[in-house]
Design a binder for these strands. Structure first.
Lengths: 208, 208
DNA sequence: CGGACAATAGACCGCTTGGTTCAGTTCCGG
DNA sequence: CCGGAACTGAACCAAGCGGTCTATTGTCCG
């Protein structure tokens, strides 16, 4: 049971955080009023302010939490023994999925909007999103090179390129509401294009 | 004393727009107060409101103007007869420059932040930025294919891929303040990587 | 030179915001 | 079932907001 430090101080702590999450991701920092948040959380203002000294800190807490959630959805590389085409296809799908999801879009939007005012949010976002993906891709690519499956000189660049290719169009068009959804099919086409391009540049042997 | 005998109506119109531009790009829509803008513009509130009925409309005007400015800086393709490597290298440099410039970053940030509240701003941004680049790239690629310089099946995808490759890392790292500047050298490296990748996928003949 | 009139500065208004306070209510372990 | 901590709801505050209004300035033309 979570009886240890749980019940100590704050029965409604999670409610507050959850409400803040909803409202901040929907309306941004300025767009969200504290009253909105309390209403959404089903909690009184005094309760909210008993947990968080001010709106700023509450926002930072939420933002960091969302970045952590984002990190959890990031790519992982398990079956590193398969052909790079397969591994990259699966990884690319994850990247494209996040880029086109409502969650990914909201977090991105809010972090971009507030990165000037809250630089730490910007860093956290990068570290838990694009940065983490990049890092894991690099690790995989190094392995694949060692295994003789790929030939890459500038590994960090290659990692960035692949990730960027998987987000091509998807990200931007979702951000600016040019497409409200991306079908798995359409996403797959883009990811396949990314893999083909990547392999034709860095693959050690041609395949038809 | 003003030696200028100008059109009476609108002496300070440009001042207002310029001040609004500065403040909106720096602080966003909510972050910018009308008083900030008048102060920056060196103009009174009544003057501002004699030109624009409200803050919303002023913002829209500024946003559209910035998108237009952005469009002016977009790639153009003149010397379409050179080798694709050269043409793409030059185009890619332009893309990477805009992505890493303060101007490009500010406009992007503000448009992302407000695309929810002002959908037209989002559309305008896409149309005058990534969309325009994409469109011109497509036109160029079609020509290059006709000339037998390239072999591409999905042209729009290829265009998106190239643009995205040129922005790899640059854009994201600037957005979230991981790098305050990108040297021309570093940018060139990324663009060169983009061109190499693009050519190894879509070039009709291999070159070493 | 002077009267008409548009452009201006900035005081002003109503309203919302973030944040505080407090008298009372609910919850829960002992 | 008691006592104290957690929670509530509403009232309240100062500050700042977008937007308006008026008194004043500057300019043009007869």
């Amino acid at each position: 049971m979570t009886t240890v430090s749980r019940v100590k101080r704050g029965r409604k702590f999670d409610q507050v955080l959850e409400g803040a999450r909803t409202v901040f991701l929907r309306d941004g920092f300025d767009g969200a009023s504290v009253d909105d948040i309390t209403r959404e959380a089903g909690v009184s203002k005094a309760t909210l302010y008993s947990y968080f000294p001010d709106k700023r800190l509450l926002f930072l807490e939420v933002a960091k939490g969302e970045c952590r959630r984002q990190a959890e959805t990031a790519v992982e590389f398990d079956d590193t023994d398969s052909a790079p085409e397969m591994v990259l296809m699966i990884a690319g799908r994850r990247i494209a999925e996040l880029a086109s999801s409502d969650f990914g879009r909201s977090v991105f939007r809010v972090c971009v909007a507030e990165a000037e005012r809250f630089p730490e949010v910007g860093h956290e976002f990068y570290k838990s999103g694009p940065g983490l993906v990049r890092q894991r891709l690099i690790a995989y690519l190094e392995g694949a090179i060692a295994r003789g499956q790929l030939a890459i000189d500038d590994i960090p660049l290659a990692a960035a390129q692949f990730a960027e290719l998987c987000r091509a169009e998807v990200h931007v068009r979702r951000l600016f509401h040019l497409d409200e959804t991306f079908s798995a099919k359409r996403r797959d086409g883009i990811v396949r294009g990314a893999v083909e391009m990547f392999m034709s540049r860095y693959g050690v042997q041609r395949r038809d």
